[in-house]
């Protein structure tokens, strides 16, 4: 392995960028699961939807219009999903939830096909972040740095809200013990709705920022679902710490695995997942100890 330091820096930044994308996706899913034991497999579809909304909005008003409005639009879809389907399924048990939200993936897949067609869409990197930046002795795409910065900023914001505010304490209480939280007069159902909408918006945001890096295709939601689930299983359900730790582990194992052991890269993360499940079945940092 005769790679220089710059090569490894590049890989580390790539790993970090992938991690941040996964973090945006997994945080909503894991807190929704922790708070209400609700399994939403269609979370990845919201990511794809974010990318499509961004592509359409970017065509009208440029990248930033998509950046700010697409997550809101995805949250709007989340509200529809919640009131039409999820609220009715709250007490129907994990099996029914998995089946219905799995079915939803294919409904969303076909809806995106109907509205946007089967061809991959492309969206340009915003001019603000179009170039490359000198960093740690290498040149790195500014847009990827933007994703890293955005992920870290959202992590910091969520850490503040969850750790330091009244509503954050209420969410943690709900994750710990939703029945007791209700007995203290906390409207856990409304809390769940808020968390669900924020989770949808973040999934949409992940789709928006990923769109210029990948081509926007109907099945992108399905492709990201497995990595997201691996992240939350490794990290442990329901916690911010678990989501960030799981995302970093996935991002680095995936990226460095592909460089160091290309033949093994695709199984490496599953081996790690299996190891975590054997050693600590609840994941590294579950919300419930």
């Amino acid at each position: 392995m005769a790679h220089d330091l710059g090569f490894w820096t590049l890989q580390a930044l790539n790993a970090l960028q992938l991690s941040m994308l996964l973090f945006l996706l997994s945080i909503g899913l894991t807190v929704i699961f922790g708070l209400m034991h609700f399994v939403n497999l269609a979370h990845g579809s919201l990511y794809a939807l974010g990318a499509y909304f961004a592509a359409s909005l970017a065509a009208i008003g440029g990248y930033w219009m998509g950046f700010f409005l697409a997550p809101v639009a995805v949250a709007g879809v989340g509200i529809l999903l919640y009131s039409g389907l999820i609220r009715r399924m709250r007490k129907s048990g994990p099996m029914a939830q998995v089946l219905v939200t799995f079915g939803l993936i294919f409904v969303m897949l076909d809806l995106t096909r109907i509205f946007w067609g089967d061809l991959a869409l492309a969206i340009d990197v915003p001019t603000l972040f179009a170039g490359r930046v000198e960093l740690l002795g290498i040149e790195y795409p500014a847009y990827r740095l933007f994703i890293i910065g955005l992920g870290l900023a959202i992590f910091a914001a969520l850490a503040f809200v969850l750790g330091r505010t009244q509503i954050g304490a209420m969410i943690r209480a709900g994750v710990d013990n939703d029945a007791m939280a209700s007995c203290l007069g906390i409207n856990v159902e409304r809390l769940f709705f808020i968390v669900f909408c924020v989770g949808c918006a973040l999934a949409g945001l992940a789709g928006v920022v990923a769109a210029p890096l990948l081509s926007v295709t109907p099945d992108m939601g399905l492709q990201i679902l497995i990595p997201t689930l691996i992240v939350i299983v490794i990290g442990g359900l329901g916690s911010l710490k678990g989501a960030i730790a799981g995302s970093l582990i996935y991002g680095f194992v995936q990226t460095f695995g592909a460089v160091l052991a290309p033949q093994l890269a695709s199984v490496l993360i599953y081996a790690l997942l299996a190891a975590v499940l054997v050693i600590k079945p609840v994941g590294l940092f579950p919300a419930k100890g």
Partner: peptide
């Protein structure tokens, strides 16, 4: 609530 401090355990009940 194990994830909350004593203060937070009290505050989430109090402020409502």
């Amino acid at each position: 609530f194990p994830s909350l401090t004593v203060r937070e355990n009290l505050e989430i009940a109090a402020k409502r």
